[in-house]
Design a protein around this nucleic acid. Structure first.
Lengths: 205, 205
DNA sequence: CGCTTAAGATAGTAATCAATCACTATCTAT
DNA sequence: ATAGATAGTGATTGATTACTATCTTAAGCG
């Protein structure tokens, strides 16, 4: 006689658990190879139960991405809080961002999932929003830095911001491809100064 | 009466066609959603016929990536040939690389395919080789530039090379996510100077 | 021409997976 | 206590898919 301890959760609790489990599994195996069956097994529930809480599987990934966004914004906000100046702010946000991705291996998986790059995907739209906002924020900080004489005057802030985001994405991709052979956090720490050097004002050096 | 014009190709020709068709379809729909059935239809052959020429579907993608590598190396070599100095060489290679990716939309799709990010994938190994070699080449050119006084003396050439590759990957990812809203070639042309500014020697400015 | 061989056709198989749905167990409010 | 609400079950379905065994026929060669 196997006494299955089955708890009956509220819809809200179960939804959160589904998202949490989906992210957990995606971190190990990649988004596209996580099935609803896998999720169900992980939380000791039947596969059909999943669809009481999400109309489609895709909606689970959208919810996962929303969770990531909410947490990322929190982390970036905290990092920005202690900054002394705009360039310091960017540097703190950069390292906080890298540390966050390092802590959540599901993020690269979400970024590289086919869903994201498909047409008309909700995920794609969500990422577009996140990236656009982020880019604008970085560009604004660079503009500030310029006005304070911290960045050189002929800096193209918009494309410097694109380079900033590209740097993060490139580092994440290389870490994903090289695996343990190239540590994300360590590489990031070495690459950032190269980026920063191209931004900084050279007058006072 | 349907007069099907069916030509019987040699194994070599058919293999090449399979790879070509696979790349074509991947460009439109993404690697992971291209089925062997799709390929077969595209070349007016039954699905089973594919497996006379490739033992597994994965091997088709490996062959596709090898084709890409071969072509990319050719393009980069040609770009490097006309360079006046190491920095100019990097710049020419950069634009040639971006143009090449722009010409072959399947490349981003290959980069973002789940296969690539899976454990022990042949594709992954292949990309690792390509990237390692590329990075070494860029680092060597930067080292040369340093010795010629074109790059500043405290440049960390290894991590500048990583930034260079990351810049390309980031630009590709952003172009993929933003679609037509952000043109790859145009963005790349604007971002490169920001990168270059951080590399160049400032003495003679 | 006739023979060989290899490309391709035909017709599968087994597995996977998202989604559905009728039904049941459990919780909650009255 | 009981009725309504709802989380979860269990079984199934239909579509998809990589891959295969066997048969057919076109191409190339002596």
């Amino acid at each position: 006689m196997q006494t299955e301890i089955r708890k009956r959760l509220s819809a809200e609790e179960r939804q959160e658990e589904i998202v949490r489990v989906a992210i957990e599994l995606a971190a190990e195996r990649g988004v596209d190879s996580v099935t609803t069956q896998d999720m169900a097994e992980q939380m000791h529930v039947t596969q059909g139960a999943i669809f009481r809480h999400f109309p489609t599987k895709d909606d689970i990934w959208v919810a996962a991405m929303q969770w990531v966004r909410q947490r990322l914004m929190q982390v970036l906000g905290k990092a920005a809080a202690g900054a002394e100046n705009p360039l310091d702010c960017i540097e703190r946000m950069f390292h906080a961002h890298i540390a966050f991705i390092h802590k959540h291996p599901a993020i690269p998986r979400l970024l590289f999932s086919e869903h994201l790059h498909q047409r008309n995907s909700k995920l794609k739209q969500l990422i577009q929003e996140i990236m656009s906002g982020y880019e604008a924020k970085i560009a604004a900080l660079l503009e500030e830095a310029k006005q304070q004489g911290l960045a050189h005057t002929d800096l193209d802030t918009k494309y410097a911001a694109i380079l900033y985001i590209g740097m993060i994405q490139g580092l994440v991709m290389q870490a994903s491809i090289f695996g343990e052979k190239r540590l994300l956090v360590a590489s990031a720490a070495q690459v950032f100064p190269v980026f920063l050097y191209g931004i900084r004002s050279k007058k006072n050096d």
